[in-house]
Design a protein around this nucleic acid. Sequence first.
DNA 1: ACCCCATAACGTAAAAATACGCTATAAAAT
DNA 2: ATTTTATAGCGTATTTTTACGTTATGGGGT
Lengths: 125, 125
Amino acid sequence: MKRLTKVEEQIMQVIWKSERCLVRDIIDSLGDPKTPHSTISSVVRILEKKGYVGHKAYGRTYEYFPLIAKEDYFKQTIKGLVKDYFGGSVQRLVSFLAKENELDMSELSEIIQEIDKIEKEEQDD
Amino acid sequence: MKRLTKVEEQIMQVIWKSERCLVRDIIDSLGDPKTPHSTISSVVRILEKKGYVGHKAYGRTYEYFPLIAKEDYFKQTIKGLVKDYFGGSVQRLVSFLAKENELDMSELSEIIQEIDKIEKEEQDD
DNA sequence: ACCCCATAACGTAAAAATACGCTATAAAAT
DNA sequence: ATTTTATAGCGTATTTTTACGTTATGGGGT
């Protein structure tokens, strides 16, 4: 799973978001100034070559869809970051975020409650 | 602060880690197969042009040092990721990590205790 | 049936990243 | 002092990324 470049990732975000995705939809989603159709098409073809997207043809019209889930790509990305910046410890990452005031106590409590609930539900099965 | 490419980031990791950093040190840190001196030197010069590193010359020998802190680079990276993948909510990121079993209850508790302690210390001032 | 429009694909250009051979030079070894 | 070794920098080659002009074609409108 090769790492995406900036433009490639922007386009993947659009493809992940939409159900039905033509090149035109990507252009519209990216906002102004409008990038030429051929430029987007070119990147999408590279994404297909890299295995990130597939397509279904309706005549000349191609509908693109993700082959790699957004969640999976994110997981691998964050895993790499945690490895490089926190020696592989997710705990250290979260601790860092809390110290940087990106996350406060009440939010942490909420998460604990949420997880608690899920674990209780699992016990019920 | 331009985003680093794969090789650039690998080299920055070495520069961030070491006190005194010559091109030779980078080559040694990167392990086998040894990349040619001129290749590393080339990337380091690009990093300097991008404002990530500076150098101090000792005759012909250059000692490189970071101009952008590892922590700052990480902060901007994670901020971008949280924006793209969790609508800007750090809480959602941490919740995701917990659900993915990357983080368990006891670790979350430890973090809360840690933050608690820091907040108490701040009160004492 | 014919014309127009939107689209994909191709080829390629331009820019950026990656890679390295070579030269000059400073410092160390002899 | 001379030779050897390690270094930075330059120039350039290769590959990848980003960008787009152009062409061909399928489908819709008339």
